[in-house]
Design a binder for these strands. Structure first.
Lengths: 252, 252
DNA sequence: TGCTTCCATGACTTGAGGTCATTTGATGAC
DNA sequence: GTCATCAAATGACCTCAAGTCATGGAAGCA
């Protein structure tokens, strides 16, 4: 589908090839950038490969030579978008020190504030998750499983090492639950503005959002956190934080 | 079908209209049925409207006359597929009597066994959820929100009335959490066979599945169930049930 | 027997993805 | 400076599926 760059051994002519490689890579990069904008603005189907070529001032054929197909192009765009998101453990050290659920809270709050400035990669990930073909989604899931771009596995281990997560079940199960619910919750939080009507029971008034976030964290804490106390009251009290600026994390 | 007698409201041509209406509806129905098969077998894009027409022995134009577009046709197919699934509270009375989480367990176990016999509507719902266009997904979500075809809201109220679910947060939040996690969990459980590689961390050996289901239910019980006991040990012990036959519920 | 309305028809248009023989141009060798 | 080489760029071309529409019946009604 994608055609990763020719991955041969390159016996001789290293100088020539390397410079042409560099130019080629730069061009691929430019194509991906424009394509990301087009896909994000128009959706997968309405984005035309011909338009992208015209906007770049190149021939449509070139794009197909580089990426093989529209699907292949989108896949590269998707990978770049998703890789541009920060990982869970990229949170500041003091937040990490405060614990697993504080890290979650940190990102949930940041995500919301971030969106308006940097909605394009988020939109791409939305398209990849819900708006293309099942065949492409299969590729995407393979990629997500292989790369774990949000660092969920490491993050869960972090929580386990700190003794904040229950260890009476498979790690995989916790990772899945966390991935699923975070993804959907963020989508619900975000697309209410970006894409009204996309998700059911979508976010409402801004002032309600913080309450939602706290509710959601409380549910998660009871679900995958440790100890009895978590059931009645959050084990660590999550403070209301009226979000800051900070960079990063479009989705989780 | 429309067994109204001669009516005063529709002074003339009632018979004509009603019979032609009936024929028209029957034809729509036949189209939807064939289309459902085609979409399920080939996916949205690879399913050709022309093929469907040929299979029905009618002209392609007729399909567009009835449904406007391929998207419109798929939407009707989707609605029929989803409506064919049972609602949570369609579980047998004795299961309902056993409580909220027993009903969940009942459907999770059933779903798996059901799939092989009746995979087509499930596949359609998968396409609607992940494999078409965002514009169409928006329609779909509106429909799901309006119809609540799995009866999740009523089911959650049922749990609340029985005192099995926590009532310290918005009902909407519980409904969302339940919808999200059940959907994804079932997809992970099911598509491992139906669509290998579609979901990350997908289901494995059959004997592990029952354990997964119990783990998942335990997480849910801690997350949205009531009481401290739920944290340490399921409030109601969920028995291992090596699944039966029974009809219904392709997805939830 | 006409009249009317509705629907099926299938040839037609549109337009997007995708292909490929050819040209271009950068590079190293002489 | 000139030439040989070869990957990259080109754009005319192809394919094929969605979607359109003027036409022609078929069924009901007077």
């Amino acid at each position: 589908m994608t055609g990763n760059g020719p991955s041969f051994i390159e016996p001789l002519r290293f100088g020539r090839q390397s410079s042409s490689r560099a130019r080629s890579a730069a061009k691929r990069s430019r194509i991906i950038e424009i394509a990301m904008h087009r896909f994000a603005e128009n959706g997968y189907h309405a984005a035309r490969v011909g338009d992208m070529a015209a906007a770049l001032g190149i021939a449509k054929g070139s794009i197909f030579q580089h990426f093989g197909s529209k699907d292949g192009l989108f896949f590269e765009v998707y990978k770049r978008a998703v890789r541009s998101f920060p990982k869970y453990l990229d949170a500041p050290a003091e937040v990490r020190a405060a614990g697993f659920f504080h890290v979650l809270q940190y990102w949930l709050v940041r995500t919301e504030h971030l969106l308006r400035e940097d909605w394009i990669p988020y939109r791409i990930s939305l398209l990849g998750n819900y708006g293309t073909d099942l065949a492409l989604k299969r590729e995407i899931n393979r990629f997500l499983m292989a790369e774990d771009p949000y660092g969920t596995v490491a993050f869960v281990r972090f929580g386990l090492d700190r003794g904040e997560l229950r260890n009476d079940m498979d790690v995989e199960m916790i990772v899945s639950i966390l991935d699923w619910t975070m993804e959907r919750f963020q989508d619900a939080l975000l697309t209410a503005e970006l894409d009204p009507g996309l998700f059911r029971r979508q976010g409402e008034l801004p002032e309600k959002k913080e309450a939602r976030i706290l509710q959601f964290l409380s549910i998660l804490q009871r679900a995958i956190g440790i100890g009895e106390a978590a059931a009645a009251r959050p084990r660590v009290a999550l403070k209301k934080v009226s979000g800051g600026s900070a960079a990063g994390r479009g989705r989780a």
